[in-house]
Structure formats: structure tokens, C-alpha cells
Nucleic acid binder design. Structure first.
Length: 486
DNA sequence: TTAGCCTTGATT
DNA sequence: AATCAAGGCTAA
């Protein structure tokens, strides 16, 4: 899993935004755009829906062979191989990883090898087709209106070939809204009270409406979406009156909804996908980078709107976030595994599950160590039965770190940290079947989390130095901020 | 092993 | 009867 951690802490894609826009324009002028869809795995022509989404014939066959024969591949490089039409045969390991990452479904391969007929994905495919129709109509309408970029862009937001999106469709542009995507975004410009903070970026988050139909989720083939719903309903209905400290209730309200994140991430991936083609098909590494970058936006938005944090001055807000971004990213991945994950698989924010055995990476000792220690940490937190309330607290505990240098309002940060600790202690002790040493164990886990984040950042910085991390994104800004202090 | 073409059969 | 996404076959 830590392989994924480190990948997640990697790079983002501002340069590609330009490509995306170019692709949109090309498609507009193509008479029959959606007959020329490209396989999300390798960029070849698609031949129909296969195992959850539109793919080409070769990736369909490859996925079938791999699953049916229970094949295990090992990447000879560092699990970052580029998969495109000409190179797809070179690394089956990375190819299969990419199949899973874009949303091909293991469960669509029949165990009994029965031929013909239809499977449970039928309605999903139908919905996706309808969305594509809608998109096409919108594009045609926008052409009539002399190619209004916004309309074209939003039309594309509604189309998404990833399986996760077939279940929960994205509805609104992502953080890097089209109108701002061509220029680099900085942390500063995302926080309020700063000169660079634009209304466009604000309204993206606050106006976000989740259109994921509950009925769809109920009948969804994905158990993940169902899990999120159940737990979210529990959390929103149960805290009051059950002896949960008021502060915790407040934290829970600040906590973003997992299903909303899933939708936003799907929309972001869609936006990126528009720019992919045969020559520019992203590696697993790059996909993870895109996700990491988006997670950073989620994180900033969470902090920006959270209690206590919004009372801080911009300079302190930035210092706190620069200090703990990697720890919060890791915590996000880890908490998702503890709360919703299954043993042996990595649950992505998109709701997709990746087999951990397939992601083992011996290529880099740093990566291998991250993987190992990350898994152990998940296991420890799982045994401690850390719940969503506690994770919400831990995030604040990490964010409000009074040891950060040159804080203007260090006293306030310290007082918040004390209050968070107090509320956590109260919650931990009031819960039944909790032993006395649990809180201490939890704190030990946090120190392990911190050391993991240091390791991950070091690894990333090396990648950055070897020019594998692109410039002009939130991630490189974070990397530089930390390095310039130390 | 790959990938293009073929066969199958539940659903529409 | 038509559709189309499963699995199967086979030359390269």
C-alpha cells in the first residue's frame, strides 16, 4: 500500500491542462467523436464495453486471460511503466495495474466461464451510453453557440468511462475549474483572505452538488459505495446524545463526505482523461499523481472551512499546511483502509480496490519499506478499532502543531491542540471495552505516521530532483516549502 | 502470449 | 429477431 502512498505524494498536472483543452477542441470538430473513443488503458480504439467500461479488444483479452488464469506478473522496473498501444506488451504487470486503476472489474470475469447472455453491468453500460449521448448533444449545442468553452467543458464533465463513475456520476467541474486550469495554482491562492483567492475556486467547492442517485447506489454492483452510505448515515444520525464530546461532533461536521470525494475525484480523472491519447497515455504513476494532487485540494478545502483553522491568519494557515500535508495525505489513505478497506487490498478514493499483492514493489528499498510499514500501521489501527470520529480528531491533532516554527499565534494553535487531545481522551475513555493504554497506543501510531510521512517526502523529493515530479502544482509547492525550512 | 475474429445466449 | 458483452479459437 505504501507504494501507493508514495505514488500519491508525487506530482500533478498543470501542463496537461493545456493538452486537455486542445483535445476538447479537436473533438468538437470531429463529426463522430464518440465512435473514436480511446481505450483508457492503452489508447487504442475501443471495441465496446468490456468488464465494466469501454476498452479495446486487446485489453479486454488481456484482462480476461490474466483473471481467468490467475496470472501474477512482476514489473522489472519500478511499476511506473507507460502503457500505450505500442508498448502495452512490454510490462503485463503495469498493464494489469492500469486495467484495475481505470476501473476494469474482476467480478465481470465469469468463474464458470459461461458464454453469452448479459451480466449485472448491463444497466451501468446503458446509463453510460445515455450520458455519452447527452454529452454529444451538449457539444453540438455548444458548437451552435460558437464554441463556448464553458459549455463544452461542463458537457465533458458529465461523461466518464471509469466504472466508478458509472455508479456515481460527477456533476461539477473540479477544483482546477476550467477557467483557471491554464495557470498554476498555489496554496496561497486557495486560502481565503489572500489576494490571489478567486471566487471561481470558492464557488467550485461550496456549490458542489452531489448528483449520485441513491437508487443507483443501492443497486450498484460496487460494495464500496454501499459501505460509504451505511457508515455515513450512521455517523450523521448517531453522534448526538451518545456521549460524544461536542468538539468531536463539530469535527465530524467538518469532515468531507467520502462519496462526495469519490465524485469529485471521478470528475477530475475525467478531466484528465479527455487529454489522453495514444501518445499520451498516463502511467499508473501518473494516475496516482493526479489523485494525489486532487487529494491536496480536498485537504486545503477541508482545512479552509474547518473550525478553528479559519480563525487563523493566512500566514499561519499556510505554515500549518506546509508542515503536515504529507502526514494528512498518508492519514487519509490509511484511514480509508481502516474504515472501509478489506485486508490484502488497497481501497482508492475512487472506490476502486487494488490487490496489494499485485502492487508489491521491490524495486526501491524506500518504497518497499513504506509498503511494509504502512500495512503494519493499518493493521495496528484496525486492532485498536479506531473509528471515524477518532480519525476526524487525529486530523486536527496533526494540523494544529504548535511546534511549527515562526507561528504568529502559537498560543492559539497550542490551545486548540490541547482541546483536541482532551476531547479525544474523553471520547476514548467513555467508549465501552476500551483499555487504559489505548490512547497511548494511538499516540504511538501517530508517531509512526509522522516518520512514514518524513520517509515519503524524502522519497518524493528525490523523485523531484530527478525531474520526475512536474512543476507548477500544489505538490511541488508543498515539497519546496518544507525543504526550504530544513 | 497476444489480439483479431468467432460463437454464444440472456435480455430487449 | 436483434443486440452485444461474455468466453473461445487460432495465426502470428
Amino acid at each position: 500500500m505504501c507504494l501507493k502512498f508514495s505514488l500519491i505524494l508525487s506530482r500533478s498536472v498543470n501542463g496537461e491542462k493545456v493538452l486537455m483543452r486542445a483535445a476538447v477542441c479537436r473533438m468538437e470538430h470531429r463529426p463522430d467523436g464518440d465512435l473514436e473513443e480511446l481505450c483508457p488503458v492503452c489508447g487504442d480504439q475501443v471495441s465496446g464495453y468490456h468488464y465494466g467500461l469501454l476498452t479495446c479488444e486487446s485489453c479486454k483479452g488481456f484482462f480476461k486471460r490474466t483473471v481467468q488464469n490467475n496470472k501474477k506478473y512482476i514489473c522489472a522496473e519500478s511499476q511506473e511503466c507507460r502503457i500505450d498501444k505500442s508498448q502495452r506488451k512490454r510490462c503485463p504487470s503495469c498493464r494489469f495495474q492500469k486495467c484495475l486503476l481505470v476501473g476494469m472489474r474482476l467480478e465481470a470475469v465469469r468463474a464458470d466461464r459461461m458464454r453469452g447472455g448479459r451480466n449485472k453491468f448491463g444497466p451501468m453500460y446503458k446509463r453510460d451510453r445515455a450520458l455519452k449521448q447527452q454529452r454529444k448533444a451538449l457539444i453540438q449545442a455548444s458548437e451552435l453557440r460558437q464554441c463556448s468553452p464553458n459549455l463544452v467543458s461542463s458537457a465533458y464533465q458529465r461523461d466518464f468511462t471509469f466504472a466508478s463513475c458509472l455508479q456515481t456520476q460527477p456533476s461539477v467541474p473540479t477544483a482546477q475549474n476550467d477557467s483557471v486550469s491554464h495557470q498554476p495554482l498555489s496554496l496561497c491562492s486557495l486560502l481565503p483572505d489572500s489576494p490571489g483567492y478567486t471566487q471561481c475556486q470558492c464557488t467550485f467547492i461550496s456549490n458542489w452538488t452531489v448528483k449520485s442517485e441513491h437508487s443507483d447506489c443501492a443497486s450498484s454492483p460496487s460494495p464500496v459505495a454501499a459501505v460509504y452510505f451505511e457508515s455515513d448515515e450512521l455517523c450523521s444520525s448517531s453522534p448526538q446524545g451518545l456521549g460524544i464530546p461536542q468538539l468531536l461532533v463539530e469535527f465530524l461536521h467538518c469532515d468531507p463526505d467520502e462519496l462526495q470525494l469519490q465524485n469529485k475525484m471521478a470528475a477530475r480523472l475525467l478531466q484528465e482523461q479527455v487529454g489522453w491519447n495514444q501518445h499520451d497515455s498516463p502511467s499508473t504513476f501518473r494516475l496516482m499523481c493526479i489523485m494525489a494532487d486532487q487529494m491536496l485540494f480536498f485537504m486545503v478545502e477541508w482545512a479552509r472551512t474547518s473550525t478553528f483553522f479559519k480563525q487563523l491568519k493566512l500566514s499561519d494557515q499556510m505554515k500549518l499546511l506546509h508542515n503536515c500535508w504529507s502526514e494528512l495525505l498518508l492519514l487519509d489513505v490509511i484511514s480509508r483502509q481502516v474504515l472501509y478497506g478489506k485486508e490484502g487490498t488497497l481501497l482508492l478514493v475512487t472506490g476502486q480496490e487494488v490487490e496489494l499483492s499485485d502492487t508489491a514493489c521491490p524495486a526501491s528499498p524506500t518504497l518497499a519499506s513504506l509498503v511494509q510499514r504502512g500495512q503494519e500501521l493499518v493493521e495496528k489501527l484496525h486492532i485498536l478499532k479506531v473509528d471515524r470520529q477518532e480519525f476526524a480528531c487525529i486530523k486536527f491533532l496533526i494540523l494544529f502543531n504548535p511546534d511549527v516554527t515562526e507561528l504568529e499565534d502559537c498560543q492559539f494553535v497550542k490551545s486548540v491542540q490541547e482541546r483536541v487531545k482532551g476531547a479525544m481522551l474523553e471520547y476514548t475513555w467513555s467508549a465501552p471495552s476500551q483499555h487504559l493504554g489505548r490512547f497511548a497506543h494511538l499516540l504511538l501510531c501517530l508517531s509512526e505516521l509522522h516518520s512514514l510521512s518524513v520517509l515519503a517526502e524524502e522519497y518524493l523529493y528525490c523523485k523531484h530532483l530527478s525531474a520526475e515530479v512536474p512543476c507548477n502544482n500544489l505538490l511541488t509547492e508543498m515539497l519546496h516549502a518544507k525543504q526550504s525550512w530544513e
